[in-house]
Design a protein around this nucleic acid. Structure first.
Ligand SMILES: [Mn+2]
Ligand SMILES: [Mn+2]
Ligand SMILES: [Zn+2]
Ligand SMILES: [Zn+2]
Lengths: 136, 136
DNA sequence: GAGCATGTGAGAACTGTTGTCGACTGCGAG
DNA sequence: CTCGCAGTCGACAACAGTTCTCACATGCTC
């Protein structure tokens, strides 16, 4: 059975305070800095449990790092600022239908998808942010 | 300037023989097994150069590993079988427009996106493959 | 409270990837 | 066809993120 521990509660609470995506390492550092005593392994275990419970959503950065944020229940995608990390949740029913349809046309079943949009947000753009590319 | 070397030519050639996505490590192992002498660093440098040249497309697995395949020039996405790794290139102009539009509505500029569809292909499904989930 | 399955965490181990640096080599200049 | 050298190679070390190990601690049930 799953136990309530100080650490799990604390990790969960961190994501109440935080906007956008954050890595396990960052969460660990924040907690340590705030005086919480917790091990890095425990943070990893906690975020994974929260993802399994549907409490957190996770995506992977271009650099291969897993990042997490508190996630609303309905299916959606993310619009992420490359410069500041600011994140918007976006929905597109037509895209959902397209993905399922195109997969079905190829004979695929049990279909899921990942979709992330990256750009420079208005604030960062007016501040003069750099740019980057994404494979297709 | 960029030089033609035996190694770069060989890495490029490997992707002529191969369907679907393959990791740098796998390519290295294949080449070694086939008697080619090449260093792992060189394979990494070669695949990255090929990605930069638009010769290869790269995506990242759930496990965080970068995988590569020979890629047609036009912008597209991938429909990947979770069981056998078989990959179809798919296009959806409407999805492209949607991504740009929704990003623009939020004030984002310099917009790119990633979109991958996962499922079980017909062959694997009739063979009775397992299933998995993908975050949203 | 007692018993014990479950969770913790410091550190080691692992994985994919990148950096280092002396040796090597493609290739344009002469 | 040399020569010279910037570009390249590759064994190896270093790195970053993540997972494993295992002795110890602690929620939960009874
Ligand atoms: Mn979707
Ligand atoms: Mn697209
Ligand atoms: Zn921004
Ligand atoms: Zn398949």
């Amino acid at each position: 059975m799953i136990r309530n521990t100080r650490q799990r509660t604390a990790v969960n609470a961190v994501f109440d305070e935080l906007e956008g995506f954050h890595s396990a390492q960052e969460v660990h550092a924040r907690m340590r800095a705030a005086g919480d005593s917790i091990g890095l392994s425990t943070v990893y275990r906690a975020v994974q449990a929260l993802v399994d419970d549907g409490e957190l959503d996770s995506i992977r950065t271009d650099a291969g790092e897993a990042i997490y944020r508190r996630c609303s229940a309905r299916h959606h995608h993310h619009l992420v600022c490359r410069a500041c990390g600011r994140t918007e949740e976006v929905e597109g029913p037509a895209v959902e239908r397209w993905a399922d349809r195109v997969a079905g046309e190829h004979g695929f079943v049990d279909v899921t998808h990942t979709l992330e949009i990256f750009g420079t947000c208005a604030a960062c753009h007016s501040a003069g942010a750099p740019s980057a590319d994404q494979p297709g």
